[in-house]
Amino acid sequence: MTVLPKDIPGDSLKVTVGTANGKPGDTVTVPVTFADVAKMKNVGTCNFYLGYDASLLEVVSVDAGPIVKNAAVNFSSSASNGTISFLFLDNTITDELITADGVFANIKFKLKSVTAKTTTPVTFKDGGAFGDGTMSKIASVTKTNGSVTIDP
């Protein structure tokens, strides 16, 4: 049996954390987006972790974005102690894959008090994996961190 590389060099799934701005007490939304989904033969499963400074940001909610089908079954998240974990699994293993680019999740943060303008990162942590529509590992994932700026 011969195994051929399935990824064209330079191609990767792009996962990007967005940015937001606000004043202390505001609730802002930071999107997590996927790009080049079709090039990577869709997404059938993924789990990953984001870190944030809990002294500056309070997670209000984490909701599935419009590219997630049947989110009540296929999407899960949790947030505590400065870490947000995400889990997606197409429970049907074929019919509810992520097949389009767009917003995977929206994180709502309540901004805490600061004395001066502060930009705090929302960054990928170690761990996690992504699988394509056949549940094979997506070897190349380009992750881009985001941030939230609090301006009193």
Rank of each mutant, 00 (worst) to 15 (best):
T33M: 12
A100W: 07
S61W: 13
D26Y: 09
D11E: 09
N145L: 05
A116Y: 04
S55G: 13
A105V: 05
T142V: 06
V148L: 07
T120K: 14
S147V: 06
T120M: 03
F130H: 00
D11T: 11
K137E: 03
V73Y: 05
I67W: 04
L57T: 12
K143N: 03
M135T: 02
T115E: 06
G10L: 13
S85I: 01
I138D: 00
V28D: 07
I98W: 01
P121E: 05
D26W: 09
K6E: 09
G128L: 02
I93P: 02
E96P: 01
E58G: 09
N70K: 09
L57M: 12
M135D: 00
D132I: 01
D36A: 13
V73H: 03
V141M: 10
I150G: 15
A100N: 07
T118F: 02
Y52M: 08
D7T: 12
T29H: 10
G128N: 00
G127P: 02
G10H: 12
N21F: 08
G22I: 08
P31A: 11
V148G: 09
E96C: 00
D126K: 15
P152Q: 14
I84F: 05
D126N: 15
D151Y: 15
A116L: 05
L50R: 01
D95Q: 03
S12C: 14
D101T: 09
K41Q: 09
L4E: 11
G44N: 00
K110G: 02
G44P: 01
V59G: 06
K108I: 04
V17E: 08
V114S: 07
F34L: 10
A72N: 15
V15C: 14
S78F: 15
P66S: 12
L97T: 05
V60T: 11
F34R: 00
K23P: 10
G131V: 02
T19Y: 13
A72I: 12
A64I: 08
V103T: 05
S140Q: 07
K137V: 00
V103L: 03
T33V: 07
Y49Q: 00
L111M: 06
V73N: 06
G102F: 04
V60N: 13
T2S: 14
K14T: 11
N106V: 06
V60K: 11
D36G: 13
A35T: 08
F109D: 00
D126F: 15
K112I: 04
T19L: 12
G51H: 14
T142S: 05
F109W: 08
